[in-house]
């Protein structure tokens, strides 16, 4: 079995109002020195089989077809996480 972690983030230049709201909340907490916050998503996925190359192909396919909206989001795949 292969474990993978997929991280989906907003592309540079895409407005992230949720990140902005978090920035302001952090400021309200008195935490100093916070620059920019960008919110993303994490997916932990287990896959059958042990072939990392095959897993990468399937993980990329799931990102392209569903997990990320590539109009606005980038994704990164980490295999064998943890």
């Amino acid at each position: 079995m292969i474990k993978a972690r997929i991280i989906v983030t907003l592309k540079t230049g895409v407005l992230d109002p949720q990140g902005k709201a978090i920035e302001s909340a952090l400021s309200n907490l008195g935490i100093e020195g916070v620059g920019q916050v960008r919110q993303g998503k994490v997916f932990d996925v287990t896959l059958e089989g042990d072939d990392a190359a095959s897993a990468k192909t399937r993980l990329d396919a799931m990102c392209e077809q569903l997990l990320a909206n590539t109009v606005i989001e980038n994704y990164a795949v980490e295999i064998d996480h943890g």
């Binding site: 895409v14 109002p17 949720q18 909206n69 109009v71 606005i72």
Partner: peptide
């Protein structure tokens, strides 16, 4: 329709949240 690729672009969270 955007998510299905029948129309271009994406609809994101309202700017004022």
């Amino acid at each position: 329709l955007c998510e299905a690729g029948l129309l271009p672009g994406a609809l994101m969270r309202n700017a004022a949240l």
